[in-house]
Structure formats: C-alpha cells, structure tokens
Design a protein around this nucleic acid. Sequence first.
DNA 1: AATAAGTTTAGAATAGTTCTAAATCTTACT
DNA 2: AGTAAGATTTAGAACTATTCTAAACTTATT
Lengths: 142, 142
Amino acid sequence: MSSDTLNSEALSQKLAHSGLRNTPQREVVYKALLTRRDHPTADEVYARVRTDLSTISLATVYNCLETLVQCDLVRAVNFERGPTRYCPNLAPHAHFHDEETGSTFDIDLPPDLLGKIKDVLPPGYDADAVDIIFRGKTTATR
Amino acid sequence: MSSDTLNSEALSQKLAHSGLRNTPQREVVYKALLTRRDHPTADEVYARVRTDLSTISLATVYNCLETLVQCDLVRAVNFERGPTRYCPNLAPHAHFHDEETGSTFDIDLPPDLLGKIKDVLPPGYDADAVDIIFRGKTTATR
DNA sequence: AATAAGTTTAGAATAGTTCTAAATCTTACT
DNA sequence: AGTAAGATTTAGAACTATTCTAAACTTATT
Ligand SMILES: [Mn+2]
Ligand SMILES: [Mn+2]
Ligand SMILES: [Zn+2]
Ligand SMILES: [Zn+2]
C-alpha cells in the first residue's frame, strides 16, 4: 500500500469522525501540506495544488484548510501580520522564523519542557495550548 | 514631577535617540497604551485617544504605533488572525489569551526559563527573541 | 520671514480573508 | 434508474485591517 493511500485513508477517517466527506480537493490540499512542510500560505497552497487539480478555486483552498484545522490534522500558524500559514506537524513543536529569509522551521520540543513552561502560569490560568515562536537568523553550520 | 511628565520625557528621549520629534499625537497614543494595558488594537487606541485629541486620524494612530514599536517602547503582538495588538510592557513576558473572553494577560517569565527554552535550539539557529503564547481559559480563583 | 524637514491628515488603494448564492456532486431512498 | 436532500465547490462580491499618496500643517534652521 502506497504512502499516498495511507494518508488518504487517515484523512478520510478523520473527516468521517467529524461527519465530513473526503473530496479530491481536500486530498490535494492536505497532500500539498504534507509534501512540502514549509508552512505555506493559502495562496501558496493554491498555486501548488493547481498542478494536480487545475479547476480548484482559492475559496475552496481556504475552505479545505479550515476543514483540516477543524479536524485537528493541521495547525494554523500566525506569528506576524500577514497571511496565515499552515503546518501539518502535529507533534509538540516550536517555530523558528528566520527574519532574513522569511522561512519557518519546526523545532521539536522535549516533553518535560512544556511542563516547565506551563508552571509559570499563576493559579486560575488554565492553558490548553502553548505556542512558542523564536525569531532570529540561521547560520551555515545548521 | 508628575508621572505624566516622566513618561513624556522618557518618550521624548527615546524618540530623539532615533532622530524623531515628540508630538501631541505620539504622546496621547503612548499614554493610552500605558493607561490601560489590555493590548488594544489600533482601532481601540484610536477610540480612546479621540477623547484627548479629537482631531487625530486613524492613519496617525497607525503611524504613531509603528513609531513606538521602532523606538522599542512598545511591542506589536500577533497571535491570531485579526488586528495587531500593542503592548507597552518591555519586561520579558508571555501572553495568556483567554479564548472565552478574548482578553489577553501578561505573564511574567523568570529569567532562567528563557535560557532553558533557548537551549532547545539546535546549533545554527540563533534566536534574538522568543514569543510565548498560552491559550486557554481563566477561572474565578485568579 | 523664507526654507527645509518632519509630521499629520483624509481618502484611495491594497492584501488577505470571508461571505453569498448558484452550480455541481454525492448519498439515500423509491 | 430516477429523484430528493444534503454536502461541497465555485466565482465573484464584500469586508477588514493596513498601507499608500499627496496635500496641509508644524517645527526647526538660516
Ligand atoms: Mn517575517
Ligand atoms: Mn481570540
Ligand atoms: Zn510547524
Ligand atoms: Zn503584553
């Protein structure tokens, strides 16, 4: 069984769990995110999926992305003014934004650190999620 | 000497340091941020300063906020799609966003924690700043 | 006072996103 | 298979937040 089929089944299952159908549009949008995990904008996703499904509309790309976010298959990322970016990495991770190139990288977070971070919250603050964004530059040795 | 005068002088100094002048518009905008530290949007700042300076324009509010950010007197905060919010708290702090009420609170960060967080960065990643956003709800006991 | 530079202003323009309503597709039922 | 109901897609209009433009105003310098 191909990896495409696996993703497709996982997608169908998650959609079904929310009472939604799988569609060619939802598939190509999700596949676009999985193929290049560079946190593309809706416009960038639109440009990429048009290769596979030339008739898809930008509105549909927005609809599909929103659907994937609702199904917890994708995270919407906003760390600066400008278009929302989309990330299919569901593991706990931070984002590193390179201010020089504009690119964004995933940084894995050790499980214990999230606990330590949540410990700074005074009583009465109950956090469901923590977003961590580093800003800076990356150097050659990486 | 009043606290207003103090803020005003600090503002003038910081502006001068960047080769900029102080103006009534820049003063009221900065004062609005200091007076209610609830991370207002440009529109909200505009509504508040109109009491003091009824002739100010929205474009000027945007200009002044941008100027204050450039002078490192104010931080622009973006953690979700929607208007940029502004924060005059220069101490290292995280933001807690209450998803139910929409309000945002400052959470002080112990100095050592920032170090621990930056330690997760692999070699080659050089972070100037770290933004931390908690999302959740606040309860009565706070 | 004249000039230059910095600042403010109203309104036009732009970017990103959401809305609307019609068309198309899928599913369930006869 | 034929039909109705519901879900989804689509193009384009509408909307929101922000930036741009160019003229008016203010302040500092000669
Ligand atoms: Mn950037
Ligand atoms: Mn919110
Ligand atoms: Zn990511
Ligand atoms: Zn703050």
